[in-house]
Design a protein around this nucleic acid. Structure first.
Length: 437
DNA sequence: AGGCAATACTG
DNA sequence: CAGTAT
DNA sequence: GCCT
């Protein structure tokens, strides 16, 4: 089957097993609506294919050669997968701010699309190809999932509830053994060591913007470890117990405990601020930032004339690229992409990745996680309990007629977390690898 | 002392 | 190739 | 930065 993975985040790549997302850039701020490039092929082994030749439905899909975009699916040829899209295709959807009424593109011929691709590539800023989506071939997805390809795979109804709005906003922690983001990383609000974490985070931010790749990793791991550590850290000895926290950090932690702040941090002063400012320009990293600082540059204006083409775009859209994309907007863009993609191939499974997916509700997680057998048995169980489970949630008080015909929708009783759905079904939560049946 | 993920695009 | 990005 |  073919899966379209939509990645709208500009800062985070998704890496999931063999599936790599294509690094692309946040959002497209082109004001004139959107267009879909259906076969935007990149370089590599497949680029010699005649781009004007639409792949034939009946011909076997050739093995995927470009490892960047997919992994090999040996049995794919035998199964003769039908799709207008190949695994190395990329769908790019430039999106403007005012795109609600953007024109539909589903009826475009492939020649027209290719023309658009050419235009897209030639005339657009590279940064403008904001939204990209990978076509990934997955050979191990179940029939069951394929059967469900009709509906919306992305949960959108409750998307824009603002829970994704702020930078470090977290959902409340949930109890039980569920391996959720919260239980794994800890919960800001309830963590007794949050003030320590905050200080260390500031250090981390600085090193992230400096050159110090390894210190960055050290801090990051330590902070993660402290977040998972639920007891209050009272001193150096406590701290150094935590794997990931060594002598140096333990001392800093003690200083934070005793004095409330870090002298090291206070000393970073202006430099840290300016580095932060400069590296906030998309395409400007620590090296350039430090170089500029050493040349006496301090403001965005100072720096303007030293930028490359891409960096100029980064500066032009400075605000937009540094702003977190509202979840609602992600939802909207996802739908746009999906509509366009399905027009090209109705069979497509579409999944929006990144932080959007991490906050995706439990019902959808269960669904995507599988296995098919597991999902079937969970749904059957729900049915027997007079309920209904699907990728949107668990519904109670569902009325069924003869032959399991469902007469009512029922009322939504659980959807946000896997845990609550399992609970309501009376099934002990189990980790994905134990969901074989 | 040496490793700490892997890979793509840009200029 | 170094820098920047995901 | 931390760990081996």
């Amino acid at each position: 089957m073919i899966v379209l993975m939509i990645d709208l985040t500009h800062r985070m790549a998704l890496e999931l097993d063999n599936v790599l997302s294509i690094p692309k850039y946040g959002r497209l701020l082109d004001p004139d609506g959107y267009r879909v490039a259906s076969t935007l092929k990149r370089g590599g082994p497949t680029s010699q294919d005649d781009p004007t030749t639409a792949p034939s439905n009946s011909s076997p899909v050739r093995p995927v050669k470009h490892k960047k975009y997919s992994y090999n699916t040996d049995d794919e040829a035998e199964r003769g997968a039908k799709s207008n899209l190949d695994a190395q295709d990329v769908i790019g959807v430039p999106l403007g701010r005012d795109r609600e009424n953007a024109p539909a593109t589903s009826t475009l011929s492939s020649a027209e699309k290719d023309e658009m691709v050419a235009e897209f590539v030639d005339e657009r800023d590279p940064l403008a190809s904001a939204i990209t989506a990978d076509i990934i071939e997955l050979s191990d997805m179940s029939e069951d999932e394929a059967d469900e390809a009709d509906g919306q795979q992305i949960v959108t109804e409750n998307g824009g509830n603002g829970s994704d709005g702020k930078k470090s906003r977290k959902q409340p922690s949930i109890q039980g053994g569920a391996l959720t983001k919260e239980s794994f990383y800890g919960d800001d609000a309830n963590n007794p060591n949050q003030y320590i974490i905050d200080k260390l985070k500031e250090m981390l931010d600085f090193y992230e913007r400096t050159k110090d790749q390894w210190r960055t990793i050290g801090y990051r791991k330590a902070i993660l470890a402290i977040k998972r550590h639920s007891n209050p850290i009272l001193g150096k000895q406590d701290a150094i117990q935590i794997p990931g926290v060594g002598t140096r950090l333990a001392e800093k932690i003690e200083e934070i405990i005793n004095t409330g702040h870090l002298r090291r941090l206070d000393n970073l002063g202006e430099t840290a601020e300016v580095i932060k400012l400069f590296t906030s320009i998309y395409g400007v990293g620590s090296s350039l930032a430090m170089k500029w600082i050493s040349q006496g540059l301090r403001t965005l204006d100072d720096v303007e004339k030293h930028l490359t083409r891409n960096q100029k775009i980064g500066l032009k859209y400075f605000e937009e690229l540094n702003e977190r994309m509202p979840r609602e907007e992600v939802t909207r863009i996802s739908e746009t992409v999906q509509t366009a993609a399905r027009a090209l191939d109705p069979q497509l499974q579409c999944i929006t990745m990144g932080s959007y997916r991490r906050l995706q509700m439990g019902a959808a997680l269960i669904y995507f996680t599988g296995s098919d057998i597991f999902n079937r048995s969970m749904r059957l169980l729900a049915f027997r309990m007079g309920m209904r489970l699907n990728q949107r949630g668990l519904f109670a008080d569902v009325i069924y007629g003869p032959d399991r015909v469902r007469l009512t929708e029922g009322r939504l009783i659980a959807q946000r977390t896997e845990q609550e759905i399992f609970d309501d079904l009376g099934v002990p939560w189990r980790p994905p690898h134990e969901r074989h049946c």
